[in-house]
Design a protein around this nucleic acid. Structure first.
Lengths: 197, 197
DNA sequence: CGTCACATTGATGCCTCTCAAAGCTTGTGG
DNA sequence: CCACAAGCTTTGAGAGGCATCAATGTGACG
């Protein structure tokens, strides 16, 4: 009955698709919070204007990410959102979403669960960045993401992977080459095999 | 009536204090999730055993942090929690907390809000780490945390601050000295003044 | 007044970034 | 089917910056 007819829905809330051209602002600091966003394609930078007047990038949103979650709990946005390239996104209107959450606690529960997983994931990434050595950082990243057989399946390009773990792509390529030479990994067309004793 | 008599409470849920000796485990991967924790003092490492059999640190918990939020949404813990030093923590029992959240949606709402803020904060820290230059990273960190007058008030030691932003303390000291020499900041006994034009 | 942790500065070396060039893959259009 | 372009992949050379090790100064606290 009240089941989602579309997996993009949150509960019964149907998102609205938006297109934004490169350079345009989705919202500005101080604007009334219109809702939660999900980036389908493109790239969005969240920028905060500091008291001192300088810009500080809070986050760069990549496709597949939700952003502006905090807007649900605040009347106004706390940063600017600027499209870095032509972008498509879904907007879950705040009013509909809060009404939905009030009506159906289960959906709010699921939403909280998603946030909790996000916190977990972000903490993990932050911890990964603590590792200074490229070799160790790459190994840990592979260990975290591999399956039971110790196989890490390609997801996107290695260049993207490099950015994700905070290395230049050159550093990653070199590190992978060295790891293979020393027998720690085996590189295959569709992924990387870990050789832990 | 149902107001919290203690600011440590979440809704009407009263936490249970626990003490754990250095080296002891709070919980192990696969244990039934007992609840949400808050670290009062000490230090706790969250370690995941990977399929390959190696240990990967997911996060190191510092005093003042909640952890194991995801346990509320999962029947079992997904990592080990080991006390690095003698630690004191509060446990919010899962059963009581879920009952409370079901009973009082407002508390669940507040909890979700806290998670959303945490996501925001973590993303910001992650973005800060993207900045490779020590000079720029320190400046951004100061900008993010300063008040309207561009004043950054001391919170803990500089050594802690260095760790927070991912630098060695030596590198931070040197960078601060250089920033003061070049007139970007003014160092005072109780904080740091930013000199943005 | 001694200890302990923080704060500060010096010297050194390595590791990663940066710039550069070339091979490789994929897709597109003639 | 080939040619070309664009983006990813890979390796090279060089430099700079941060980590590391080390020593000393400083402040708080018992």
């Amino acid at each position: 009955m009240s089941a989602s007819t579309n997996e993009k829905n949150i509960g019964n809330v149907v998102p609205v698709e938006h297109s934004v051209a490169a350079g345009a602002a989705l919202f500005r600091q101080g604007d009334a919070a219109s809702g939660l966003f999900y980036l389908v394609s493109g790239r969005v930078r969240l920028v905060r204007l500091t008291p001192a007047g300088t810009e500080v990038t809070m986050h760069t949103v990549l496709p597949g990410e939700f952003f502006a979650e905090a807007s649900l709990f605040s009347p106004r946005y706390h940063c600017d959102a600027i499209a870095l390239s032509d972008s498509i996104m879904l907007l879950y209107p705040k009013k509909a979403l809060t009404a939905e959450f009030r009506r159906n606690t289960e959906d709010l529960w699921q939403f909280a669960a998603r946030l909790a997983r996000q916190v977990q994931g972000l903490r993990g990434r932050l911890t990964l960045r603590q590792i200074r050595s490229a070799r160790e950082r790459v190994l840990q990243a592979l260990r975290l993401q591999c399956d039971e057989e110790g196989f890490w399946k390609n997801r996107g390009t290695l260049k993207q992977f490099a950015e994700e773990i905070g290395l230049t792509h050159e550093a990653l390529y070199r590190t992978l080459a060295e790891l293979e030479r020393s027998g720690k990994i085996v590189r295959l067309p569709d992924g990387i095999g870990l050789q832990e004793k």
